[in-house]
């Protein structure tokens, strides 16, 4: 079953076009990567879905055309977005950040909150330990875990994750990508993961799209793309560790 479909989506910032007709689809429960160099349009694609950039074309979620919907209404349709830069509420405590995630689920799955919080705390024990701390005091990796936990507590069906590896050490990146895979399986999520670090992303996802200048230039299963020489030359040449923080 197709959960998300984008057809001919264009988006621009102050008249400068960033997406030139994006076509892609994500099936229910599937984990898909958006690969591409800096400036390829990964962030804008995610923002086009969550309603934080103005778009033309069609964004269809679960059969419903949500093109042009404001972000808070898209979020109510169970779309979670872990934004670039992590979107931490720095002056609020870790616990309050997580409560905001729980509140985002509205009336859906209200009875499930205790178990979900426990599950999130088991996956990221540091969030339990630092529960009363100001979120701004957490390290980059911990804030990334907080951002994922906050989004997941909204009980999304589709989770958009924007470059979680940015500025993190390779070990932490591995841990975070692995926990995304765990969540995708255990919480019945579809995940759309934007990642510059193609090698690491292809190690965890089912399928991927490769973007260049706001367009899809290659697509396929993770295994196919790992074998694809053009993709290899462009994106898998050397171990990429992401831009420094």
């Amino acid at each position: 079953m197709t959960l998300l479909e984008m057809r001919g989506v264009r988006a621009s910032y102050d008249g400068v076009q960033a997406l030139h007709g994006m076509d892609l689809g994500v099936a229910e429960g599937e984990m898909v990567a958006l690969l591409g160099a800096n400036g390829a349009g990964k962030t804008t694609t995610l923002r086009a879905i969550s309603g934080t950039v103005a778009v033309e074309g069609a964004v269809v979620l679960d059969g419903r055309d949500i093109t042009g919907w404001p972000a808070h209404r898209v979020a109510r349709l169970a779309v979670g977005h872990v934004p670039e830069g992590r979107g931490t509420f720095v002056d609020l405590t870790v616990e309050e950040n997580l409560t905001l995630g729980v509140l985002a689920r509205g009336s859906r799955m209200r009875g499930q909150v205790k178990e979900d919080l426990a599950a999130v705390h088991d996956l990221f024990p540091i969030l339990r330990e630092f529960s009363g701390r100001q979120a701004g005091a957490l390290s980059g990796g911990q804030q990334q875990m907080l951002a994922i936990a906050r989004a997941i507590l909204g009980r999304p069906r589709l989770l958009l994750v924007d470059e979680p590896s940015l500025g993190l050490a390779p070990m932490v990146t591995t841990e975070i990508l692995r926990s995304l895979r765990v969540l995708q399986a255990e919480w019945q999520l579809a995940v759309l993961l934007a990642e510059q670090n193609a090698r690491r992303a292809l190690a965890v996802v089912d399928r991927a799209y490769v973007l260049e200048s706001g367009r899809v230039v290659a697509a396929g299963s993770a295994a196919e793309l790992r074998e694809n020489t053009a993709v290899q030359d462009a994106y898998l040449g050397a171990e990429q560790t992401g831009r420094p923080a």
């Binding site: 972000a71 808070h72 934004p83 979107g87 931490t88 509420f89 609020l92 995630g101 509140l103 906050r150």
Partner: peptide, 21 residues
């Protein structure tokens, strides 16, 4: 919780919108 949502909206409106505020 309304007070919490108001604080969140004031502090980081972009992130608050993504949490359906």
């Amino acid at each position: 919780t309304l007070g919490l949502r108001m604080r969140a909206a004031a502090q980081n409106p972009a992130s608050a919108r993504l949490l359906s505020i």
